Simulated assay, not measured.
Amino acid sequence: MSANFGVIVFPGSNCDHDAYHALAHVMNANTKFLWHKDTDLSDIDFLLVPGGFSYGDYLRSGAIARFSPIMQSVVDFVEQGRPVLGICNGFQILLEAGLLPGAMLHNEELRFVCKQTHLRCETSDTLFTRNIEEGEVLQVPVAHGEGNYFTDEDQLKALQDNDQVVFRYSDADGNVTEEANFNGSVDNIAGICNKNRNVLGMMPHPERAVEKLIGSDDGKKIFESVLNELAVA
């Protein structure tokens, strides 16, 4: 039996259809939209929290969406060990919900940035990165104004010690440099997972990098990893 994917839609989401296209049309996965007022996730095997501007990013990014009815079900879903991927605003929502540690600040230069970036995979030890070699570089676009990941020194050390840093901003050759860290994120962090390794939050958009026609299909490796893991689960 094939896995069922759910893409959550909040008021203001604008990457939900990108995510649906990547999963349903490119990866041929059974995929459906989940409205933010839905609470029954019993038939879902994998949740994707997409990017956009949920609730207009009022207060701060993800702060209101965190209180949508579906989010308690998402917390329960995570506690059951089931996988969740939060992309861009989805990452911000997972942070606000306490499902990942840390917070997002405005980009260092206070500008919205939309461009292709390079990410170095820091660990293959997640269900999201089994198909990606440690140190491999992916080309994936970003589009955010509040992607400056921050956490304190103790939590940063814990992330490093627990191998929870999944992606770092790098140059095309995999060098983690200050120049590559366009938004000012601590330790060049572009994506992290939780301690149980079933939740991944990342600011870059792999769902926008699944077809070479639009610049890169490197994002497919993340979705392929997930599909392979779910197939053998």
Rank of each mutant, 00 (worst) to 15 (best):
T31R: 09
K195L: 12
F167Y: 03
E146P: 12
G62V: 08
S2N: 10
G145E: 08
S61E: 14
L47A: 01
Q139S: 08
K37G: 15
E79V: 06
F128R: 00
G191C: 03
G135P: 10
E224H: 12
N107L: 09
L213N: 12
A172T: 14
D173Q: 13
S54I: 08
M202S: 06
A180D: 06
S68K: 00
E79M: 10
Q80R: 11
I214K: 12
V166T: 00
A233C: 09
L159C: 07
L47N: 02
H36E: 13
Q160D: 15
D43L: 06
S2P: 14
E134H: 12
K115N: 12
R197F: 05
V84Y: 04
L138I: 04
S42Q: 07
L227N: 15
Q72W: 14
T117D: 04
L59Q: 11
C88S: 05
L48W: 01
G147F: 08
G184K: 08
F10V: 00
V176I: 15
Y55K: 07
H118F: 15
R197N: 01
A143F: 11
F112S: 02
I70L: 07
C114D: 11
S54Y: 08
V9M: 13
G219F: 00
A172V: 15
N181E: 06
T177F: 03
I70S: 10
F112H: 10
C114K: 08
S73W: 04
S68A: 13
Y169R: 04
